[in-house]
Simulated scan of single mutants.
Amino acid sequence: MGSANGLDASELFEGQALLYMNMFGFLQTMSLKWAMQQGIADIIYNHGKPITFTELVTTLQIPPAKTSLVKRLMRFLGHNGIFAIAGEEEEDHEAYDLTPASKLLISKAAHAGRSDPCLAPIIRMSADPLLINKFHQLGEFLSGDVETLYEVAYGKPVWGFLKDNPEYQSIFNEAMASDSQLVHLALKNCSSVFEGLDTLVDVGGGTGTTARSICEAFPKLKIVVYDLPQVVGNLSGSNNLSFVGGDMFKSIPEADAVLLKWVLHDWSDEVCIQILKNCKDSVSRNGNRGKVIIMDIIINEKEDTQVMTQTKLCMDLIMMGINGKERTGKEWKHLIKEAGFKDYKIFPFFGFRSLIEVYP
C-alpha cells in the first residue's frame, strides 16, 4: 500500500478513524440526551424484561417512516454500553435491555418511591445547549486575558451566572444532588472515616443530599451543611442536620471534621489553599485535632483503565471552563502541604473519585 507523511496507508486510515471519532463525539451526548428525554430506561424497566424493537417504537409512538432511525440510534447507544442489544437485527427481532449505565437513568417515579440513584439531572445539565455553547469560545478564552470561559461566553464567572439565572441554579443544584445519591452506596466501604466524630460541616454541601446519606448511616453525628445563603436559605433540617449560609472563603464553622465533596476542583490552587487553611482552622480550634475529608478526583493515568482516565480528563476540561482543575496525586500533595497540614491518606472511594483524609 502507498504511504504519506512518513506513514503507510493503514496507519493513515487508522488516524483518520480516530479523528472522525473525536470529531463526532458530541453525538454521544446528544443520543444520550434523546434517550433520557424519551424515558427509554423507564420504558424497559417498566416492561419487566428486554423490550423488542417493535414494542419500543410502538410505546414511543414513532411515525412509521422514522422507526429505522430509532434502530440506528439504539445501535449507537448499545455500542457505547448504554443499552444491551440481543436478538436478530435483520428480522426486527432484536431486543433492548438495561445496562449498569442505563439503570442510572431510571426515574424516581418509575422506582415508585425507592431511593435508587438517578443521574438524569446531571445529564440534563451537561447537555443543555447554553452550557455547551461556551466551549465554542475556547480559542478566544485561551488566547485572551479573561480569567474563565464563562466570562468570555456569558460576561460573568460561573457562580455569578448561576446567581443571576435562577433556572440554571436550580438545574445545577438538581444535578449535584443526583450525583450525591451515589455517596450512600460508598459509605459502607468507608464507615471508619466517620466513626468517632460528633460534628461534621459539609462545606459546599448544596441541598444536603450527601449530608442526609451520612446522617442516615451515622444518626448520632450532627451535620451542618454550609453553603451560600441563596442555596440553603429555604432548606429545613432535622434533629442532627442543619443548614447554615455563609462564605467558605472567610470562615468555616467549628467541627470535628470538615467535608469537601467535589468542591476543590472548582478552584485554582491559590484559592484551594485558602479554603483548606480555613478548614484547618475549623478542625483545630480549642485544642481540637480533627480532620478534613475530601471527596474528589485523582488523575492516575498509569493505574486507571482507559475509560476511567477518559472520564477524569473530560472532567478536567469541564473544570477548565471555570478556572478549576482535576489534580494528580502530586498536585494534591502540594495543596495539602501548602495549607499547613502535616499528614494525609488517599484511598479509592467510589467510581472515578477518591477519598483523602487530611490531618493538621
Results as ranks from 00 to 15, higher is better:
38 Q>K: 15
108 K>T: 13
256 D>I: 07
224 V>I: 14
166 P>S: 03
251 S>M: 07
138 L>D: 14
129 P>T: 05
355 L>W: 01
158 V>N: 08
340 G>I: 09
338 E>R: 10
339 A>I: 09
172 F>C: 15
118 C>A: 12
96 Y>V: 08
282 S>V: 00
319 M>S: 07
183 V>N: 11
297 I>E: 05
143 S>W: 09
9 A>K: 13
153 A>F: 04
19 L>K: 08
328 T>W: 09
64 P>W: 05
317 L>W: 08
98 L>H: 00
314 C>W: 06
162 L>E: 04
41 A>I: 02
54 T>S: 15
298 I>A: 03
42 D>P: 09
350 F>V: 09
347 F>I: 04
321 G>A: 15
121 P>K: 02
353 R>F: 05
142 L>R: 13
162 L>H: 06
83 F>M: 01
25 G>D: 12
149 L>V: 12
252 I>P: 01
20 Y>R: 07
354 S>W: 10
137 Q>V: 01
207 T>K: 14
235 L>Y: 08
233 G>Q: 11
70 V>P: 03
115 S>Q: 15
226 Y>C: 09
324 G>C: 02
312 K>E: 00
303 E>Y: 09
134 K>C: 05
172 F>D: 15
178 S>Q: 07
312 K>D: 01
72 R>T: 15
306 Q>R: 14
115 S>R: 15
102 S>C: 08
104 L>Q: 06
77 L>V: 03
176 M>P: 00
111 H>R: 15
133 N>H: 10
174 E>Y: 12
158 V>P: 02
218 F>L: 05
69 L>G: 06
12 L>M: 04
326 E>W: 08
225 V>T: 09
345 K>E: 15
280 K>H: 13
276 L>R: 00
97 D>H: 05
145 D>R: 13
98 L>K: 00
73 L>W: 13
125 M>L: 14
81 G>E: 04
163 K>W: 10
339 A>V: 07
237 G>P: 07
175 A>V: 03
52 T>F: 08
222 K>E: 04
166 P>R: 04
292 V>D: 01
294 I>P: 05
119 L>S: 10
100 P>G: 13
35 A>D: 01
89 E>N: 11
261 K>I: 05
135 F>L: 05
34 W>E: 11
61 Q>N: 14
280 K>Y: 10
251 S>A: 12
149 L>R: 11
278 N>C: 02
320 M>P: 00
39 G>W: 12
87 G>T: 04
184 H>Q: 14
137 Q>A: 11
14 E>N: 08
59 T>F: 11
115 S>P: 02
43 I>N: 00
329 G>I: 02
20 Y>I: 06
147 E>H: 11
238 S>Q: 11
273 I>M: 06
355 L>S: 06
300 N>K: 10
180 S>Y: 00
120 A>Y: 11
101 A>H: 11
65 A>T: 15
158 V>K: 13
152 V>I: 11
32 L>F: 00
198 D>Y: 07
130 L>C: 07
271 V>F: 02
294 I>F: 08
139 G>H: 15
298 I>P: 01
116 D>L: 10
225 V>I: 12
360 P>L: 05
252 I>G: 03
106 I>E: 03
26 F>C: 06
311 T>S: 07
101 A>G: 05
332 W>M: 06
44 I>E: 03
90 E>A: 11
156 K>L: 02
301 E>D: 14
17 A>D: 12
44 I>L: 09
287 G>M: 10
95 A>L: 08
181 Q>Y: 02
